[in-house]
Amino acid sequence: MYRIVFLISSVIILVHCSSKQKIAMLPYYNTPDFTPHFISADAATKEIPHTIAGFSCTDQSGATITQKNIEGKIHVANFFFTACGSICPKMMTNLKTTYEAFKLDTGIVFLSYSVTPWRDSVARLKNYAEHNDISLTNWHLLTGNKADIYKLARTSYFAEEDFGFSKDSSQFLHTEHILLIDQHKKIRGIYNGTLELETQQLAKDIAVLKNEGQ
């Protein structure tokens, strides 16, 4: 299903009446089934109530990261754990390529939430960041309360296909999905982080959001 949504979001364009220039337009997502809504920003204010909820986590430097750190900014979110030997290494490698293109842009924040926060301490996250050459510029590897992170993943980011609100924190969270969130904390894209082509599309869509906010 996500592949279909991805293809739709990557090909839909609007034609500007006066200049006849093709302008990329990203959909809004309001529900866990990721039905795309191609509407204007003004319409989204009224028709897309879903936004990323408040949160408080600690990053690899020991700093507290909250919703204040993403106010008015584009942010990219994913879920991983440092001991993961399956999907996480490929996802984080692909995400790093996207990050490199925007690491000096203070208007973009990358948030990688640990799904094993009881194991991924600040020290462990710091070691992981250093080992993988992840800088502190605007990429935060986050640890915190397990229940809070799992709830945020499932009910705010809709990180697992078809589940939405149906799972609780007792059921392990493991997903390859990367989410793109706009300056108003609304979901604008979802990508399979294990596929290089989709993380390349993520970079293109970040650029679209940057232009949208100008």
Rank of each mutant, 00 (worst) to 15 (best):
N78Y: 15
N127A: 14
A101E: 09
F80E: 09
F102D: 03
S121H: 08
Y113T: 02
L142W: 12
L152P: 12
F172C: 04
H75N: 11
Q67M: 07
E161N: 12
G72Y: 10
A101Y: 14
T106Q: 14
F165W: 12
T66K: 02
T106N: 14
N127T: 10
W139Y: 07
N138F: 00
Y128M: 01
G85F: 15
F79W: 08
Y157T: 04
S169Y: 15
S170C: 01
F165M: 03
A153M: 10
F81Q: 09
Y157Q: 06
G144C: 05
S170Q: 09
Y150W: 12
L95V: 06
N69R: 07
T98A: 11
N94V: 03
T137E: 09
E71W: 05
S61R: 14
A159S: 13
N78L: 09
T58D: 02
L111N: 08
G164Y: 07
F165D: 13
A147F: 06
Y150Q: 07
T82A: 00
T137F: 09
K146F: 02
K73T: 02
A147L: 05
L136R: 12
L142R: 15
E100R: 11
Y99H: 13
F165Q: 06
T97F: 03
S135M: 04
T58P: 05
Y157C: 04
S169P: 08
T58V: 15
C84D: 14
G62T: 03
K96I: 07
V109L: 01
Y113L: 00
T97D: 12
V122L: 04
S61Q: 15
A63V: 01
T58F: 04
H140M: 00
T64L: 06
L152V: 11
L125Q: 03
C88F: 01
A129M: 05
F172S: 13
E71V: 06
A129H: 06
C57A: 08
A63F: 07
K68V: 09
F80H: 13
V76S: 08
S170M: 04
F110M: 02
K151E: 06
D162Q: 14
N94H: 12
A77L: 09
A123E: 15
E71R: 10
D105M: 00
S112W: 04
T116K: 10
K90L: 11
Y128T: 04
C84Q: 08
A101C: 07
E130L: 05
A77T: 15
A101N: 11
P89I: 02
K90H: 11
T97H: 13
A83D: 07
A83H: 15
S61I: 01
T155F: 00
F81H: 14
A129I: 09
G72E: 10
P117K: 06
E161D: 13
L141W: 01
R154Y: 13
H131E: 13
W118G: 03
F80A: 07
T175N: 06
E130R: 13
S166A: 15
S166Y: 14
Y150E: 01
A77Y: 15
I74S: 01
K126H: 14
D120W: 13
K90D: 11
S121G: 04
K151M: 03
S114R: 09
W139L: 00
R154E: 00
F158T: 07
Q171W: 12
A153P: 12
